[in-house]
Amino acid sequence: MKTSLAFLFAGLTIPLAAASQLPVDDFSQWKTPRDWKAASGQLEHPFTKWTSASTTLKLKKEGVHRVTFRYRTPGAAGVPLKIRIGTKVAAAFPATENWSLATVYFREKSPVPFAFIAERKKPYTLQIKEMKLEALEKTDCRKIRLNADDGVSPFRTMKGEMHQTIKVKDHIDEGAAFLCRGNGAKDLRSIELPATPGRRYRLSFWTKGSSGTLRATVDGGWFPKTKYWSFGETMPVSEQWKKHSMEFRCPTEQEYPYLKRGLISCRFTVPAEQMELFLKGIELEELP
């Protein structure tokens, strides 16, 4: 069975807050391998082991930009969908049988190469649609939510069984929560989120699960030969929903030069033998 990549593109233009939407080339304009077929906004191409579809994003100014798109990867079974922006892999989104809304934040100079990268030994189908590019203002970055209603995409499971999203009936907000299950230790890492060095932030979230503890950490990512920064707290987990928050200062560029990239991510770590952990309403908020 050949792997096929089907790109479905629907141009939706719903502006968010002060963010301004920027045009993205139609998929028919994208650089794709030979023998790709395009019909009715959908691209399909048989490939073996590795493939990619790329374009160039034209940005109007510097600053934080956000790309969102919906994707699903039925049959991918654990293989992430990677995004390369510029020269680096900027994000990797978990495989999912159901449509998930993926978001990636970045700061780059225009024009910036953008590519989807899919790789797997066994064939599967990758579907992508509704891709949108936005330039964000400062106000857009003041409060960022990781929403389980978007699907599994806001997190990657670094350790333990693959996380999932599940509708919860006992939370004050309707909708879904992230759920980690299983006997072993669990570790979730979020997508990278915009953060300004030197500013104070609050990470807050609702959690419940098997009684025990949870460690919440924020960091600037790990890079070789680079001084690493992180900040974390251990919180109790109970069988009732409780809201936790931790406040921290994002160090300055002088303290940690690599943080000038302006992106951090958060991690949630649960020790082994705590069978379940639910997370909902995760927010990173810049403090005045």
Binding site: K169, D170, H171, I172, W206, Q240, W241, K242, K243
Partner: peptide
Amino acid sequence: VGIIVSDGSEILT
């Protein structure tokens, strides 16, 4: 009926 109540830091049904 399960009535879900939150004070902003805790949720009880």
